[in-house]
């Protein structure tokens, strides 16, 4: 058990490190550096930056040092929670990102809950009644769900909202609450707005999970312990729910590990279409404005959040599966 946790933790740390290197690459890949883009943005807003000021800024930011030193310095700042300034906003990055990062995670988790709530019963049904009419319908709808990119679904939802209901179905808050400080009423408002983005985000994941659950459960249903449970006199419903479903649930729990990056990834682009106040629109703006510092930080933080989520799901898996808990596989 300890070995399992240590291994997962090590992997998580390694992943965070890999993400940090990639994020740093994003910051450093484009020609020029932070200062050149700073100069560009300053001159765009009408104020000039002198050569001397630029050099002073470079030195202050350590941009004249070798790349490895810069990386170490940047990581140091990140670890202290000092994410620097967002140029366009003229505010610290942490200020700009804060709520948006939380909301990204809220939406992602809501999407995963939706995915599970739908995929679990449908997957069970399809496995218990394979090749039935409903199974074929679910399979077909699932295929279509897989084939529609998230942003397209979001577009269609927006279009239907506008064209047929004359309402903007995007956003996460009513106008009254958008700028208001957090309160119970605001959270309630958020809850009311969550379903549409959660469904849009969850659809393709649901289609995948249904297929995973169906094939896992079909395998489990063939195993002798199902027949012995039946031979003990349990009702059919209890036999299926208590044994094979319970066993097939384990790989299902472990799907969070890859569902989370997938959903977070999708949330970026869906947020743009549905104009959700997540980090998605912020990231795009930062990238288009070449504010790589902000963009790199967002990529890093998204990655870290995902890794934490995955680690939690690993612990959850250990909790539900005695074979992992007791160190057998």
């Amino acid at each position: 058990m300890v070995a399992y946790v240590v291994r997962r933790l090590l992997l998580a740390v390694l992943t965070v490190w890999a993400i940090s290197v990639l994020s740093f690459m994003i910051i450093h890949l484009p020609p020029g550096d932070y200062v050149t883009s700073y100069i560009a943005s300053m001159s765009a807003s009408g104020s000039a930056v002198s050569e001397g000021e630029a050099n002073a800024l470079r030195e202050q930011l350590g941009l004249d040092k070798p790349i490895t030193v810069q990386y170490a310095k940047w990581m140091g700042l990140m670890l202290q929670g000092n994410f620097g300034m967002a140029m366009e906003w003229g505010r610290p990055v942490s200020d700009v990102i804060g709520d948006r990062l939380t909301l990204t995670m809220v939406i992602s988790v809501a999407a995963i809950i939706f995915t599970w709530a739908l995929a679990l019963p449908i997957g069970i049904y399809s496995a218990v009644y394979p090749y039935s009419f409903a199974d074929y319908v679910f399979t077909f709808v699932g295929f279509i769900g897989l084939a529609i990119p998230g942003f397209l679904l979001a577009l269609v939802v927006m279009y239907v909202g506008f064209a047929y209901f004359g309402a903007n179905v995007g956003g996460l808050f009513s106008p009254d609450f958008a700028e208001a400080p957090w309160s119970l009423a605001k959270i309630w408002d958020l809850t009311k707005h969550l379903p549409i983005p959660a469904v849009v985000l969850g659809v393709s994941g649901t289609a995948q999970l249904i297929r995973i659950m169906r094939s896992n459960l079909l395998d489990e249903l063939r195993k002798p312990y199902v027949m012995t449970a039946r031979a003990r006199g349990l009702s059919e419903y209890r036999v299926i729910m208590r044994y094979p479903v319970r066993v097939a649930l384990n790989p299902f729990v472990s799907t969070i590990g890859y569902l989370l990056p997938y959903v977070v990834s999708g949330s970026i682009i869906v947020s743009l279409v549905l104009s959700l106040p997540t980090v998605g629109p912020l990231l795009l703006k930062a990238l288009i404005a070449q504010d790589m510092f902000l963009a790199g930080t967002i990529v890093l933080l998204l990655g870290v959040m995902t890794v934490i989520g995955t680690f939690i799901s690993d612990l959850l898996l250990m909790w539900v599966d005695p074979r992992i808990r007791l160190g057998r596989q």
């Binding site: 990639l22 994003i26 990056p261 990231l283 795009l284 967002i298 990655g303 890794v307």
Partner: peptide, 10 residues
């Protein structure tokens, strides 16, 4: 385990 779209975007 890395969210791909932000990475690709970057």
């Amino acid at each position: 385990s890395i969210p791909t779209i932000p990475l690709w975007m970057g």
